[in-house]
Amino acid sequence: MTPRTKEQNEQIRNLRMSQILKAAADVYLERGQQMEIRDVAAEAGLGYGTVYHYYKNKMDLLHDLMLQAMSRAEEILLSAALAAGQPAAGAAVSAGPSAEPGRGRYADARAARPAAANGTGPPQRALAVKLLQAWAEDHAFYLACRLGGEQFRPLPEAQAEPLAAAFREQVLRPLAAILGALPAADPQAPADGGEPGRRAEWLLAALTGCALAPLRRGTLRDEAVQIAAFLF
């Protein structure tokens, strides 16, 4: 038998990692802290030893799952901003990491007229729909948003603190920028309706709570518009 090349070994490794992380997200969604490596192996259709080769314990596995999910946050949130704001084609969307809420790459939503995914309603509804639909496809991102609201307390402190910092920078901060750029959902609402950062926390808390049951049922994508309409 011809030995595998280095590139083939790397492909196999990437495939195994992808299987393990996807399975871990599905298992944690159902079992939470009761998740064990053996559960992940069974869900992934891999041997226990194969999963253990990559992850010696469930906390390291959960840490990597959260870290990789948050690395996808910028692309997901930018897509959500475009869905909510519907900026004109060709509008500039660029900003450095120090952009203020309501400015930079998400700020084009400011010029948008209120429109939700079903054609009516405030732009916050379209944003909520987009997030819910993203979670329906990416369970790990849902878990990152849910556990981020809890400061990743299920993990050891040495892992939780840097994850919480990444969550603030990669999820809360851009989401606050989107919310700061959108027109008010209710023009009659009090002007002191919360800072964008605090509203970002409220939005994620409300959405993750509403999403859990339909996510477990596998119906979140179908129910996303109804959930968003209920909240907005």
Rank of each mutant, 00 (worst) to 15 (best):
D138P: 08
G49H: 13
I37L: 09
A144K: 11
L203Y: 14
L77C: 06
Q8W: 10
E223P: 12
R113G: 00
D60N: 08
H63W: 12
R173E: 09
A69Y: 00
E36V: 01
L61I: 03
D138V: 15
T5V: 14
P87Q: 04
G104S: 12
P187D: 12
T219C: 05
A128N: 00
V51H: 05
P101Q: 03
A116M: 14
L67Y: 15
D138G: 11
R221G: 10
P154N: 03
A128Y: 03
A80H: 03
Q11Y: 09
I12G: 02
A160S: 11
E7G: 13
L29I: 06
P187S: 14
L204Q: 01
G102C: 05
N118T: 14
A229L: 07
A189W: 10
A229M: 06
K58L: 12
G193R: 13
A200N: 03
C145G: 11
G149Y: 15
Q19T: 07
Y55Q: 08
T208D: 14
M35T: 15
A176L: 02
A44V: 14
P154W: 10
A88L: 09
A206C: 12
P183W: 03
L82V: 10
T2M: 15
N9E: 13
Q68M: 11
Q86S: 14
Q133W: 02
Y55C: 04
M59K: 12
S94H: 12
R199V: 10
L212T: 15
R199E: 02
D26N: 06
D39R: 04
V51P: 00
E137T: 02
R168L: 12
V129F: 07
A126P: 02
P97Q: 08
A99V: 06
K22N: 05
P214C: 15
A44T: 09
A136D: 05
A205H: 13
N57L: 10
E150H: 01
A83E: 14
E161Y: 02
D26I: 06
I227S: 05
A181E: 09
Y142T: 04
E36I: 04
G49Q: 03
A109I: 01
E100M: 03
